[in-house]
Amino acid sequence: MKHKRSLLALPYVGWMALFVVAPIVMVVVYAFTTAGFEPTASNFTGMGTYVSIFARSFQLALIATVICLLIGYPISYVMAKEGPGFQRVATVLIMLPMWVNFLLRTYSWMAILENNGLLNQLFDAIGLFDLINGLFGTDLTYFRMIRTQGAVVLGMVYNYLPFMILPIYSVILKLDRSLLEAAQDLGANSAYVFRRVIFPLSLPGVLSGVTMVFVPSVSTFAISRLLGGGTHMMLGDLIEQQFLGGAYNPHLGSAIALVMMLIVIVCMWVMNRFGQGEEQAVVL
């Protein structure tokens, strides 16, 4: 019986080996070799030059994650509390943008945020610039929104928000109603029930939401390229340049990718530890 089951698993083991393990091994091999495939550590020793890019990537990804959490948690909570009709509509609305191609969505934001884009045209049309110029004696004709770090963060939040909402929503939805009743029964008002029961029990959803927003945010390159205008280079851009761009050096690219992966893994590990501790710490 057991033998049969392991046979069934074979295709998946093969798949994983081919498409997960092998690429990682290749990245590791590239990272520790020169262009002539001589073993070297120089790809890592020279990485100090990119510290600012690392810092910016993690900083922007962290900001985007926090914003996603602040927006996403209340939405998830309200959705889970509402009736099934509202839930269906809300779920579709949240998923809908994800059915549109990622690049297309990001290009649309470009059109919206451009100096002569939709948003600035709207501000102009309602006389916002005239008002401000009249008040402060300035000479504004548009707000600079594109090619800023803010635009990059906006792009991340917009693209990854569903990944924050859905896990939290499904965890809150599955909470045993009788737990909330038990807390009320013991004397807790709704704020207390939320603080001591709903929130701690929704932490697993928060953790997976944070992971699913933070990881793609930290490695994104399309968003920073299109909305950041290449002026705020992030890790994704840096790695992409090593593979496709003018600075062609897959060995350095692999090393950067590897370091990034390690940092992300450490972050996640620390957070999971923290999260587990939190569940108990909340009450002590």
């Binding site: 009788s178 737990l179 009743e181 807390a183 029964d185 004397g187 008002n189 029990l201 009450v283 002590l284």
Partner: peptide, 24 residues
């Protein structure tokens, strides 16, 4: 409301808080 009644309930499936230990 329930939280203001001098009445407490033992629920059908106990409804113990899974994130808390026995003491808590």
């Amino acid at each position: 409301p329930p939280h203001k009644r001098a009445v407490n309930t033992v629920f059908q499936k106990y409804a113990l808080f899974p994130h808390l230990n026995v003491y808590e």
